[in-house]
């Protein structure tokens, strides 16, 4: 069954039908704001992005550009399990796995690309990651770019830690922890 909503539009009165009066009323709102902003610029709500930004409200910073976390020995925390690539609804992650000969973690991503021009900023990749290796907390908005290439993030561009990291918090990988310990890099 399609539900039908009845809308009772009020019939226009004479003044509204004349039209010019309503136009003037609307313009007066615009003009009022124009003068208010002109004499009191501190109250302007919009900022000239991207030159200027405002702090992101609440948890919105967890929907900003991706990064891949790095272990204390400089290796990516990511083990190329493909969970994020599988979960991504926009098919924008491309991983190629490779094998460490030495490191007991065995597997790492040789290629890790995120095509931001396709990304819908849903955060599924972060949810899916069993290693806490990918995060969307750089507080950089994925704004416009002059060509598509700029929106393709590769492993080099993604790998970085925030100040205070690497922390062992959330290091799910026993093998990684053991490896770091064996090198004295806890």
């Amino acid at each position: 069954m399609i539900s039908v909503k009845k809308v009772n539009n009020k019939p226009l009165n004479l003044l509204e039908k004349i039209y010019l009066w309503e136009i003037a009323r609307g313009l007066s709102v615009t003009i009022r704001h124009f003068f208010a902003n002109l004499f009191n610029p501190g109250n302007i709500l919009t900022v000239p992005y991207p030159e200027k930004t405002i702090p992101l409200p609440g948890n919105a910073r967890f929907r900003t550009r991706h990064r891949l976390k790095v272990r204390s020995d400089g290796s990516p925390k990511c083990v190329a399990c493909f969970m994020c690539q599988t979960a991504c609804p926009a098919y924008c992650i491309r991983i190629e796995a490779a094998e460490y000969t030495e490191n007991t973690v065995e597997k790492y991503p040789a290629v890790f690309d995120i095509d931001l021009s396709r990304c819908v900023m849903c955060g599924m990749c972060v949810e899916a990651c069993p290693e806490d290796a990918i995060a969307m907390d750089t507080e950089e908005l994925t704004g416009g770019a002059l060509n598509r290439g700029e929106l393709l993030m590769t492993k080099d561009g993604l790998l970085r830690n925030l100040p205070g990291e690497p922390s062992r918090k959330g290091a799910a990988n026993r093998l990684a922890n053991e490896y770091l310990k064996s090198r004295g890099e806890e």
């Binding site: 399990c81 597997k107 990988n173 093998l175």
Partner: peptide, 10 residues
């Protein structure tokens, strides 16, 4: 060991 993330059998 529950190392499914690096296991090919997963």
């Amino acid at each position: 060991p529950l190392d499914c993330p690096i296991c090919d059998q997963a």
